[in-house]
Amino acid sequence: MKILSINEWLLSFMPAGAASITEMVLIALIYLTVFAVLGLYLVLLERKVAAWFQLRLGPNRVGYKGMFQTLADALKLVSKELTGTVKADKFLYNLAPYFVIITALMALSVFPFTENLQAFDINIGLFFLIAISSIGVIGILLGGWGSNNKFALIGAMRSGVQTISYELSVGLSLLTMVILTGSLQLSEIIEVQKNGWLIVQGHIPAMIAFMIYMISGTAETNRAPFDMVEAESELGAGYHTEYSGMKFAYFFLAEFINMFIIAAIATTVFFGGWLSPFGITESIPFMGIFWFLAKTFVLVFLMMWFRWTFPRLRVDQLLTLEWKYLLPINLVNLVLMAVIVWLNITIQF
């Protein structure tokens, strides 16, 4: 509604083309601001959650209960010197953080936060998301390659191996759900779920798909127990060893925004996106944002819980898990889901 009136206001004094460009810029700015803040608060959330798991208090000095801790950290990182190694491939080295952060921000544009609140409702939404999220790994590879550091290089190579493998599982588990929805468009996927969330509609295969998705999604974001790429006890800091200041912050923020993206995809595909449970707040406008964020943060918390409980896998075990366990199960699950849809034994309200 509001966007519509801004549109009319802009059209009143500029031509249609200029107006649409201005709108795009405005929307991009809003998204950037929202997600910079979101990234910062995800970092804070992670630190708080980690502290609570580990019998600590977490940040509690800057602002009320540490509310501005990560903001202060970001300011500190901005003010820091950007160092680099001597024989680094300067161009690739400087390019890498932008690859990571831009793909993370691009992926965010397609999510329907609530009814009609979606920047970009593309009809291959899910496909777009999978594609975009795997571009991020190029940034990691470039960063590891460009830094002229062996630890960074090992980290980057591990990242390449990991993403190539786990991309399959992410794609296949989402494909399993696409059989149910019959569409890749995110708004339509949510439309289908008005008859029950897909995890309920698809029951057993949907749950298996969800579990596989969460495992491989955690691996996609390079988080523990799949943090081969950073593996601080093995590689120090992995691919971002040589990055400092804001460039490091880009990698860091991208990791958290990627985590949000993975959780948001799971929310949209498995848990009904912005739909409220049993439609209890259907009549209240913009309540969808609350439900979307609530579901997403529950899944984000689940990923944090993984991280602060499990040991890290070894790099060959990582591949064993994917190729010997997740992928075969996923393929069988895909067939199972197809049979269920064919026999029409889904649960719908």
Binding site: V49, W52, F53, Q54, L55, W305, F306, W308, T309, F310
Partner: peptide, 9 residues
């Protein structure tokens, strides 16, 4: 393992 950390959480 998750139940142990969850309890402390």
């Amino acid at each position: 393992g998750m139940s142990v950390t969850g309890k402390y959480f």
